[in-house]
């Protein structure tokens, strides 16, 4: 197994543990924003999509796939963060 794969697996497993610790501390009252917020960051696939959409000056079949991927990922990122922010600003403590 080459070392890049191994490093990737290390990162994957350690991030799983870190994520589980962080998320276990989120109170039930914030579970919906947790979902929409983690949803927004899963739009990180946009990093791969940007490269595909922008790597060729001529329009190839792959460019179309790339543009579609960018559009889907952007819906996820922009929509996810905005809706999370909309919800979180409503959580207030009153006297």
């Amino acid at each position: 197994m080459d070392s890049a794969i191994l490093i990737g697996l290390y990162i994957f497993v350690l991030a799983l543990f870190a994520g589980a610790e962080l998320i276990a501390k989120v109170p039930p009252t914030l579970h919906t924003p947790l979902m929409s917020g983690s949803n927004a960051i899963s739009g990180i696939a946009i990093l791969g999509a940007l490269v595909v959409a922008g790597e060729s000056l001529t329009l190839k079949g792959n460019t179309v796939v790339g543009v579609l991927a960018v559009a889907f990922a952007t819906v996820n990122v922009v929509g996810g963060y905005m809706v999370t922010d909309r919800m979180l600003q409503m959580f207030k403590k009153k006297k």
């Binding site: 990162i11 497993v13 991030a15 962080l22 983690s38 791969g48």
Partner: peptide, 21 residues
């Protein structure tokens, strides 16, 4: 597949969050 560590970290976080919920 892309050997992009940022995607791996985020995938782990989101995967963990979904499974815990």
């Amino acid at each position: 597949a892309l050997q992009n560590n940022c995607l791996i970290v985020v995938g782990s976080l989101v995967g963990a969050s979904g499974i815990i919920l």
